[in-house]
Design a protein around this nucleic acid. Sequence first.
DNA 1: ATGCAAATGCAAATCGTTTGCAACTGATGG
DNA 2: CCATCAGTTGCAAACGATTTGCATTTGCAT
Lengths: 139, 139
Amino acid sequence: MSSQARPPDYESVLRDAGVRITRPRKIILKILAERDDHPDAMAIFRRAVRLDDSISLSTVYRTMKLLEDRGAIQRHAFQGGPSRFEPADSEHHDHLIDLDTGDVIEFHSEKIEQLQDEIAKSLGYEIVHHRLELYGRKK
Amino acid sequence: MSSQARPPDYESVLRDAGVRITRPRKIILKILAERDDHPDAMAIFRRAVRLDDSISLSTVYRTMKLLEDRGAIQRHAFQGGPSRFEPADSEHHDHLIDLDTGDVIEFHSEKIEQLQDEIAKSLGYEIVHHRLELYGRKK
DNA sequence: ATGCAAATGCAAATCGTTTGCAACTGATGG
DNA sequence: CCATCAGTTGCAAACGATTTGCATTTGCAT
């Protein structure tokens, strides 16, 4: 159950930003809207090729960057692997990565967030963002 | 004041592991023992070249891997940049990265660690390791 | 429809890191 | 003390993820 309340309307995000809704973009946006995992660029590319085999990996990367810059998706660079993406519309959460399967489980702890703020403050810093990842295996 | 109680004796670590103490390794180990920051491979390489300009970057990487595999150093892949290293002899801590300077400040919160364990447990997982990084700027 | 800037696909470039290989060198046995 | 030889080196090339230059295509406002 790691799904969003409502899938984000990426197309309006882009249209509002004044960028063109092209065929490759439509396809990539569709894939993003339907995904319920945390795919990397290559995974998105593979899914896209099934719908239109003329799509290039560069376009996937370019589209991800576009969406990231518009704040529509978030990029996560987990341990070792390539960047993986997820919509940014859901509320903030951190990640537990299953070391055996690569699965990503989302969680949130207000308490931890508070403690982080306290720590940063006590060091004279203001947190711009943070990264909390738990790597573990099923018991 | 992010220094260790005592600099680790990398040379014995390697000798005990049955690997040769070569000239390039001696130099790299010396740099590691004296460092008090979190240098990346290139930074270590630059410092090494000042002591012996025949040292290669590959050897730096190979030596870091050697030490990492022996548990003598830890590798940190902070946001975006290359891996940065630090001795593994100190107790566990997390990092606050200064977004303006790249400086790394170490901190530890037993409370956060406990909360992490609780969360993992409640999800049916056992934490193998974690990554907690705060990215911020000085106030 | 038409024009033109925006977007594409492709190949080549980039960055951090690893690796194959031939030359070199520690450390051990004699 | 030195020969031996596997362990190490430097170099250049290979790597995987991502970005970029460029000539060609394509949205889409007119």
